[in-house]
Structure formats: C-alpha cells, structure tokens
C-alpha cells in the first residue's frame, strides 16, 4: 500500500538526494560563539520560566512563549508538511499540546525548544501519516506535498556546537545511510516508503538505517 503512495512522488530519486543532502563544513562564528552561547542560555532560562508559568495556567506567559517560539516551530511544521493550511492547523494543535503539558516539561531532559520541537515534529508526522491513510483509502493519486525537491535543512547543522558534532558524525556515514535517515526524520517515511522512493531493496534500507544509527550513536558518544 505504502509503495503505491510513494511511487507517485518518485523522480530520479537518487540524483535529487545526492544533490540536496549536503553538509558544508562550518568555519565561521569563532568570535561570536561565546555571545551566541550566552544568548541561547538566557533564552532557555526565559523559556523554562514561561513553561512553568504556563503549567500554572498563565495565558499571558503562553502568549509570550508563542511570540518567542512560533516562527521557529512554524518553520519546522512547514518544512515537514509543505502546505500552509495543514501547517497552520498542525501548529495550532501542537501549541495546545504544549499548553496542556507544560507542567510535564523537565529541564534536565531537554532544552525547552528541543522539547517543543519534538512535540511539533511528531504532530506534523502524525498528520502526514493520517493523510497518507486517507489517501490510500480513497485511492487518490498521492500526496505530492510529502516529498519535494527542496533542500533538506542539514546545512544548518553548523550553527551550534551540537549541530557541528552531529554534522561531522553524519558525514562519516555512507551517503545512502545519511540520506534515508534524513528523509525518515524530516518526511516521516517508513522502511517500505524509503525502499520504494529510493528503488532499493527493503532489507538494504533496514540495514542502512540500523547500522547508520549505531554508527551515529558511537560517533556522538566518542
């Protein structure tokens, strides 16, 4: 079923993938690193306080939280869903989740924006999967918005220390491993869909991902 769905999106997949999953080596920000780290630290502190106030049902704090984070999170949703109307509904639902679950945020587990980004990404991927099921049930011609030819945003990995580390480790993977991991992360493609989209045997896709994840973890922990 899912093969039929992704096959409608296929277009010389590998050549496109090879073109758009490129991680440049960052050689900038040496002078501004400390200032940037301090700005991030202060922002995180404020977001933590705002989330705590949201947990106590402070709507004014929630409005401030929204004004500080919505552009970032809307960018994430838009990148996954590729459609304004879907992205706006999704963003709305994601913020309601943030409001209802602000009391469950734990600063020792993740930075506030990481926590919120995970909620937003999962909300977007859930919506994508739901629409996929609807399309399959209606025998429609597919979801052209799921995969487009735009760049996947791995080039931004050079912006932070964690990003640089992840970027370096991704660079050590085989090109195909990096590509399927990025597609799964940003577009929510399953093993079957990745196999169909890249015209690669399913077993190979599963191996690439498993080995890729294992290699990534070892690299990041080293």
């Amino acid at each position: 079923m899912s093969v039929a769905y992704v096959s409608t999106c296929r277009f010389d997949a590998w050549s496109v993938l090879l073109r758009y999953i490129y991680i440049p080596r960052g050689e900038f920000m040496a002078n501004g690193d400390n200032d940037q780290q301090e700005a991030i630290r202060l922002r995180n502190q404020e977001l933590e306080r705002l989330l705590a106030a949201c947990a106590l049902s402070d709507r004014k704090a929630f409005a401030r939280l929204y004004s500080m984070t919505s552009a970032k999170l809307y960018g994430v949703v838009l990148r996954i869903l590729n459609r304004d109307d879907l992205a706006q509904d999704c963003l709305q639902d994601a913020y309601i989740k943030v409001w209802n679950n602000a009391g469950n945020y734990r600063s020792q587990m993740a930075a506030p924006l990481t926590w919120m980004s995970a909620i937003v990404r999962n909300q977007a991927l859930d919506l994508l999967r739901k629409r996929k099921r609807e399309v399959m049930e209606s025998n429609d011609s597919g979801l052209p918005e799921q995969i487009d030819g735009a760049l996947l945003p791995l080039e931004g990995l050079t912006r932070t220390d964690d990003g640089k580390r992840l970027g370096n480790c991704l660079e050590q993977l085989k090109e195909q491993q990096r590509q399927v991991i990025a597609l799964a992360y940003f577009k929510g493609l399953t093993h079957d869909e990745l196999a169909a989209y890249t015209e690669t045997p399913l077993g190979t896709i599963k191996t690439w991902i498993r080995r890729g994840l294992d290699q990534l973890r070892r690299c990041l922990e080293s």
């Binding site: 919505s70 552009a71 970032k72 960018g75 963003l91 990404r121």
Partner: peptide
C-alpha cells in the same frame, strides 16, 4: 531525541499568520 535535535536548527523561521494565535 537530544542527538537528533540539531537537525531542526537549520530550518529557517517563518512567522505564522496572526489567525493561528487567535485560534489558539
């Protein structure tokens, strides 16, 4: 989740329409 978090850093922010906040 922490390891993958920087993947989202490269996405450019986009200001959502005001109507989104009104609904929320």
């Amino acid at each position: 989740h922490q390891r993958f978090a920087p993947m989202l850093d490269g996405i450019e922010p986009v200001t959502p329409p005001n109507a989104v906040w009104d609904q929320i």
